[in-house]
């Protein structure tokens, strides 16, 4: 099985001198192709920092990180930008859709940034939006004209459209009601079954249960175990 993520002894701290606070204390983890991993942890455990580092959106102090075999820890800003566009699909808790763009324009962005033509980007985006249940009548709507569930589906379509190696989700159901949250989790399972690798950050045990594998993060340290052990 191809390794998507390989992290060895990753450390990150904020502040300096007496105010220095270590947030990630020597994290090591491997995620294989096709896995559906939930990183479960309470607020302030360092899970969001870990997600930002995995998503190449934040730097770290020590350790090694390979993404699909590429050494992220050696990359400069431009290379990290390329990796974010080509290899990672982000799904945020607050969707992070650009309000002035239509659903279609938002979905097309990763492809347009990659240099794909508008026509081709639109075709591929339409396909993903359709797959996620966003009909043609909704594609020219702006995010604020859509429900939370629909916005999250557009965010998922945007994450999928570039066919990334890794889907990185940060509390994907956090802003949704229970029913819509369930629908989104079902969608994640479906996407995983289709072969997508998913890493999901959550504080919610129920949400974490949807994943095939769970790791716990407490006070900046990762704990692995069987799903039932960790859920207990």
């Amino acid at each position: 099985m191809e390794q998507i993520i390989k992290i060895k002894n990753l450390r990150k701290s904020y502040g300096q001198g007496e105010n220095r606070q270590e947030v990630l204390k020597g994290i090591s983890i491997e995620v294989g192709d096709g896995e559906f991993l939930a990183i479960l942890g309470p607020s302030g455990s360092g899970k969001s920092t870990l997600m930002n580092v995995i998503g190449c959106m934040d730097c770290f102090d020590e350790g090694e990180y390979w993404l699909t075999g590429e050494p992220v820890y050696k990359m400069n800003d431009a290379e990290l930008t390329r990796v974010r566009n080509r290899k990672i699909g982000f799904i945020f808790q607050r969707y992070h859709l650009i309000q002035k763009y239509t659903a279609l324009q938002n979905t097309m962005m990763p492809l347009l940034i990659r240099g794909v033509s508008r026509r081709e980007a639109a075709e591929q985006s339409m396909e993903k939006l359709k797959m996620l249940g966003i009909g043609e009548q909704r594609i020219n709507h702006r995010p604020n004209e859509l429900s939370g569930g629909q916005q999250q589906r557009i965010a998922i379509a945007r994450a999928l459209v570039g066919s990334p190696k890794l889907l990185l989700a940060d509390e994907p159901t956090g802003a949704l009601d229970r029913e819509t949250g369930e629908e989104v989790l079902a969608l994640f399972r479906q996407l995983n079954e289709m072969g997508n690798t998913i890493v999901m950050i959550t504080h919610d045990l129920h949400v974490a249960k949807s994943a095939k594998r769970i790791v716990k993060i407490i006070d900046g340290q990762l704990y692995e175990g069987s799903k039932s052990e960790l859920l207990d």
Binding site: N85, F90, I98, P110
Partner: peptide, 16 residues
């Protein structure tokens, strides 16, 4: 700022 953050997260470069 947030829009810039989203674009950067999606892979928009500094130059763009």
């Amino acid at each position: 700022t947030q829009e810039i953050g989203i674009l950067k997260a999606l892979g928009c470069s500094k130059r763009e």
